[in-house]
């Protein structure tokens, strides 16, 4: 029974995260801010989605 609660809580948090992620992607970046790139050269993961989401263009058309 407890396991059901655990899966429920974890699942709902995961769903919340996904919903907020998609809502965030759909929110357009305010004008004047489209070309900002975070200055993050410390970590070298070139395929990091966080880094690439700013070079690909993170607006309604994503």
């Amino acid at each position: 029974m407890k396991i059901l609660y655990a899966i429920l809580i974890a699942g709902s948090l995961l769903a919340l995260n996904i919903v907020l992620l998609i809502a965030n992607r759909r929110t357009p970046v305010p004008e004047g801010c489209e070309n900002l790139v975070p200055d993050c050269k410390g970590c070298a993961i070139t395929s990091c989605a966080i880094r690439n989401s700013y070079t690909k263009g993170d607006t309604k058309n994503d």
């Binding site: 200055d39 993050c40 410390g42 970590c43």
Partner: peptide, 9 residues
């Protein structure tokens, strides 16, 4: 990790 990356400016 972010500390090394962002502390240059």
């Amino acid at each position: 990790c972010p500390f090394l990356g962002v502390s240059t400016k």
